[in-house]
């Protein structure tokens, strides 16, 4: 359970993924708790009640333990949230040096390699304000990937982007999924989720309504809320 004051953002959000689930999609209407659940899974928020088990071990709740657990994960947000006073490359290298203790040389190398791979070779030394939304989001993905995270958590990474830029960013995520990166993705891109996700968790009103394999969810959803949601999303597509 995660509360904000009186408001229960998550209540009864229990689920367990299958053993082989690598890409988990969090779906559901806005305000249903996707973002909160994603932050709780990644250790960015500590729940008031209940626990998150990773391979059978609970995430620690004391501040220091939680920070250590958090540092094994990478986050990407809807609004990119790059640091505006740093260049794209510095955004990637600073956490590597400060948090993960890498040498400047190693961090530079890792940063250049990743940003080049994500198509930002020409933009290494630009500040976020000089980059397009799609470029910013790819730089944010590079920042999250740089320390080789156990889990990459993406919170509606394309909701602020136009269709072309959305395509750029989804291509990157699909490639990562194919390479075996473990991913948790909160999204409204339903056809993308259908393509890449192995497991779907459907949330509404702060409660997990459904948790099943992707195939089962898309072809035979159990709850009426999920059925309504899928119908609404596919109406104009």
């Amino acid at each position: 359970m995660k509360r904000y004051g009186e408001f229960n953002a998550l209540n009864g959000a229990s689920f367990q993924t299958g053993e082989d689930a690598r890409v988990v999609a969090l779906l559901g209407p806005s305000g249903g708790g996707k973002s909160t659940l994603l932050r709780v899974l990644g250790g960015l928020l500590v729940p008031e009640e209940g626990s998150v088990l990773v391979n059978g071990v609970a995430l620690p709740k004391d501040p220091e333990g939680a920070l250590e657990a958090l540092r094994q994960n990478g986050f990407v947000f809807q609004g990119y949230n790059l640091f505006p006073h740093l260049t794209a490359l510095q955004n990637v290298t600073l956490p590597l040096m400060v948090v993960h203790g890498q040498s400047e040389q190693a961090a530079q190398q890792r940063g250049q390699e990743l940003l080049t791979r994500l198509g930002l070779f020409d933009h290494l030394h630009k500040r976020p304000a000089e980059l397009s939304g799609g470029q910013q989001q790819r730089a944010a993905i590079a920042r999250a990937l740089a320390p080789k995270p156990r889990l990459l958590l993406l919170d509606e990474p394309t909701s602020a982007l136009d269709p072309v830029m959305t395509g750029e960013v989804l291509d990157v995520i699909r490639e990562l999924a194919q390479e075996g990166q473990q991913i948790v993705l909160a999204t409204h891109e339903i056809s993308f989720a259908r393509q890449v996700a192995d497991w779907v968790v459907f949330l509404a009103n702060g409660t997990v309504q459904e948790s099943s394999t992707s195939v089962k969810f898309f072809y035979d959803p159990m709850s009426s809320l999920a059925k309504e949601y899928l119908t609404a999303l596919t109406k104009y597509r």
Binding site: L67, L70, F75, V98
Partner: peptide
Amino acid sequence: SQREAAKAVGFNKVQ
């Protein structure tokens, strides 16, 4: 959002 991003990359409070 900047504070959250800073926390997300693993910075502690001082960092």
